[in-house]
Nucleic acid binder design. Structure first.
Lengths: 128, 128
DNA sequence: GCAAACATACGAACATTTTCGTAACTCAGA
DNA sequence: TCTGAGTTACGAAAATGTTCGTATGTTTGC
C-alpha cells in the first residue's frame, strides 16, 4: 500500500475525476474543464493541484514550464474506498443493502440488469 | 420538497445514525453513545445538535428541561441522496457500476446473494 | 433553603478547506 | 530588447466545520 489512503476533499475529487478522464494534463486544461461546471479562478485550481501534489494525490512532471499532472491515486481504489465508507456509515456494513438501494431507486437498463444477473450467477457458482 | 436536501456534515451524520437507531433521545443519550466510538465533550455534542436543529436536520421537543431530539431527515432519503451522489461523482452515473463494485469487493453471504438475485429477477419481470 | 448535579445557550477559538491576489519567472513575437 | 501573455509559488483571507469554556437556569436530595 502506498499513500493511497488519503481521503480527497470534495474539490480534490472533482480534479481527480477530470484527470482520470483526460489523462495527464496541465493545470490550464484541468481548469478549462472545471469551469464548465463551476465558477472559479485559475489560481484556485492551481493551488488545489499543488496541495494535491503535496498530499500525493497527483503526480507531476515539471520538466517543462507548464507542469503536467496526472492522478496519483487510481479511480478503482478511490471507488472502493468511498463505497466502503458509504456501506459502513449508512448501510450498517451490508453491501447488499446498498445494492438494493442502487437497484431500487435508479433507472437501470434491461441490458445492465442482465449483466448484473450474469455477474451474480458467476459469483454464486465460483464463490464458496 | 422540504428541507431534506441539506447535506449533513461528517459529524452530523454520526448523530443522525444514532438518532435513527435509538429514536427520540436526549443530548445526553446521544452523547453517551457517541463517546463509545469517539472522544468528545458533552457540550460539543450539544452544540452540534443545536446547529442541526437550526438546519432542520433534527426536530426537538423542548417542553421539558431535557430536550428530546429526533431525526428530521429519514434514513431512507439520506441513503438515497448519498448513493445518488456517489453514483454521479464516481461511477459516471451508472448505478450498475456501483452494484458490481459493491458485489465484487465486499463479502456478501450466500443468503444475501440469493436475495439480491431474487430481487433482480422480480425487477426484470415487472420491468419489461 | 441550599448545594451539587445537570441542562441549555452561545461566543469564540481552532482546524480544515477553498479562494484569490500578488510577486516572480519564462517565453514568444514585434 | 522589450512587452505582454502565460506560468508557478505562496501567503493569507474567507468560508466552513468542529470543539469547548463559561454563563446561566433548573432540578434533586438532604
Amino acid at each position: 500500500m502506498s499513500s493511497q489512503n488519503i481521503k480527497p476533499t470534495e474539490s480534490e475529487l472533482e480534479i481527480l475525476r477530470i484527470l482520470w478522464e483526460r489523462g495527464p494534463s496541465t493545470v490550464r486544461e484541468v481548469h478549462e474543464q472545471l469551469v464548465k461546471t463551476k465558477e472559479s479562478g485559475y489560481t484556485t485550481t492551481l493551488k488545489l493541484m499543488q496541495i494535491m501534489y503535496e498530499k500525493g494525490l497527483v503526480k507531476r512532471d515539471d520538466t517543462n514550464r507548464s507542469h503536467i499532472y496526472e492522478a496519483g491515486v487510481s479511480q478503482e481504489k478511490t471507488r472502493k474506498m468511498m463505497t466502503d465508507k458509504l456501506i459502513r456509515t449508512l448501510f450498517q456494513g451490508s453491501s447488499s443493502k446498498l445494492v438494493m438501494q442502487a437497484l431500487g431507486h435508479h433507472k437501470v437498463s434491461k441490458e445492465e440488469l442482465a449483466a448484473i444477473r450474469k455477474y451474480l450467477e458467476e459469483m454464486e457458482k465460483s464463490g464458496k
